[in-house]
Every structure is written in structure tokens, then in C-alpha cells.
Computed example of a mutant assay.
Amino acid sequence: MKIGVFSTFMSPLATPGMIRDFGRQAEDIGLDSIWMGEHVVLFDKNTFGYPSSKDGRIPLPEGGGMLDIIATFGFLAAGTTRLRLGTGVALVPQRNPLYTAKEICTLDWLTNGRIDFGIGVGWNKEEVEACGYGWEDRGARCDEFLEVMRRLWTEPVVDFQGKWVKFETCRLDPKPIQKPHVPIIVGGYAEPALRRAVRFGAGWYGFSRDPAGTKEMLRRLDEAFAKAGRQRNQDFQIIITPPATMPIDAMQEYAELGVDRLVVNLGSQRADRVGQRMAEIEKLVKMVA
């Protein structure tokens, strides 16, 4: 089981120096990857609350906000050589699919194939609508956008006629370094998300899942594969971020479930807390080595 860290970098704590040093330290202690979540804008009032907090709000430093995943990964890539960089998750149905395809394959090109494209449909209705898209049809739109991106990454010339995207004799270069394309890691717990993982995914990502919840999701994922007439094989990656309160010494259970990559939540980005947490994560790396 490989160990990564989840850290959605936030201003004002995540300065250029902090991010650069963090990337180097992550590589030095043997971490597999760094994962970042995505939100373009946030709102004082939401129809649905953030599912990973008790009050329904994303915890932010006072006066701060979330850094952009693409720009931050480009910055991290320049200061590292081995770390994989994963979006956890990119909100595909509120993104322009052509721009997204270009950004992700460019990152893959510049990092020599170190990008994992974690994707999801999102929970923030106001954010989806502010980006110019509808809320109710975001799942179908996500599937169409993924198909567009997959074809642009793998075919020299693409014609596409969908509900949201239409073009003829379109070329996107350079192609990704990874073949057949950048790995698509599907997040989400509803049946459509599991079907999406079977159709498009090189893996499935569960956020804030304890071992019991992980075991149940793997059962449901295997059912989704069976319904599609397929079987989950060893190349299909299971990636889990445990609950932030879970003790480091309890995380060995995930390896017993067959989890391939454990992405531990960093938590606070205050300098003193980062040092303490990274020492704990280094202990976990040595435990599973």
C-alpha cells in the first residue's frame, strides 16, 4: 500500500515557500503522491452543505481561500521529480472540457507522466450554476465531458456531436505521456458514480472513508462491475482518504482490505502543525514499507 497526503493548499498559510518546502519534504520521506481538492468560488449560503464537516462549511483560514489545482500542481511539479499529483477531485461538470483536457495533458507532459485525474460531480449547487451550467444534469454532462477528454487524449483527430459539446476535425496536442491516457480516478458513492467508475475509471477514490465504509463501498463497486459484465482487476486502483481523526497506527486495516493507495489528510497548514503531522505520516510510510 502506497501512502500519499491530501492537502488543499489555502492562502494565506500556503505561501510559495511553504508549498515548495512541503513538496520536497513529501518526496524526501517517501510519499507516493499529493492530492488537492477543487473549488473555484465559495458562497456564504449554500443549498447543500459541505459533506465532510459538521457545520456544512469548508474550514478556511481567516481571510484565505483555496488555491487553484492546475497552477499549484505546475508549481509543485517544478520542485519535485517523483511525486504523483492527483486531483481529489476535479469538478468536471462545471469545467470547460477542452480547456480541462488541455490543462491535464499539459501537466502530464511536463511532469513526465505524474498526474492522476481524480474527478467528481460536486456538491455545491451554487458553484455549478455560477460556472454557467445546470445542476440537475451534471451527472450526464460529466459523462459526456469525460468522453470528449478521453477521445482528445487518444485520437489524432476527433469529431464529436453531443448535447453540450459539438466540433469537427479537432486536434489536441501534445498527447499525455501516460498511456492510453491520464488515469481517470472516479470519486463518489451514488450508483451513477460507481457506473462512471466502471465505464471510465482506472480507479475509485473514497474520501473520509473508515475501514468499514471502505469495505462496503468495495462490495458495491464489485456489484457495479458485475452488472457491466466485468470483474474488477488488480490494475483498478482503490484510493482512500481516511477520516481526519483516525489514528495513524489504525490505518494498517486498509492494506488488509486491498487498498492500493492511502491518501492521509494533512489537516492544518500552520507551520507547527504541518511538521507534527508529517512526522506521523512518515511513521505510517515506514509501517507499510
Rank of each mutant, 00 (worst) to 15 (best):
V182L: 03
G187S: 13
T106Y: 03
G187R: 03
G88I: 01
I177M: 15
P156Q: 07
G49S: 05
E27P: 07
A197V: 04
T154I: 01
D210H: 13
S7P: 00
F48G: 07
P183W: 03
S52E: 07
R20E: 08
G201P: 06
S268Q: 05
M149I: 05
A190C: 13
D116I: 02
A130E: 11
W164T: 12
R141K: 15
G88P: 00
D272M: 03
Q231N: 12
P211N: 04
L218S: 10
T111M: 11
F167C: 09
P61V: 08
G37N: 03
V158I: 10
K45Y: 10
W135M: 13
Y205F: 13
G134D: 08
A78V: 00
Q234F: 01
L91H: 07
F207S: 14
R95L: 13
K54T: 07
F9S: 00
P247S: 08
V165M: 15
D116L: 13
G79P: 01
A250G: 07
W164L: 14
D137K: 15
A90Y: 03
Q237F: 00
L98A: 09
R196Q: 13
G23P: 04
F200S: 13
P180S: 04
E280S: 09
E27N: 11
V264W: 00
T214F: 04
E155K: 13
E126G: 04
V264Y: 01
I19C: 04
I69P: 06
Q25V: 01
D210P: 12
M66W: 01
G267D: 01
L85I: 09
R151C: 05
T8C: 07
D21M: 04
P97Q: 11
D21W: 00
Y254V: 14
I239T: 11
S268W: 01
T245E: 09
C170D: 00
V41G: 01
D137M: 09
M251V: 08
D116Y: 01
I58Y: 12
S7H: 02
N96G: 06
L262R: 08
A255T: 15
K125N: 05
I177R: 08
Y133C: 14
F6R: 04
N96S: 14
T80K: 06
Q25W: 04
A212P: 06
W35I: 00
T47F: 02
N265D: 07
C170E: 07
V89Y: 02
V148T: 11
D21Y: 05
D116H: 06
G17H: 13
G118C: 05
A26S: 06
F236L: 02
L152F: 03
T80Y: 12
K166Q: 14
L284V: 00
S268N: 02
G229A: 11
R20G: 03
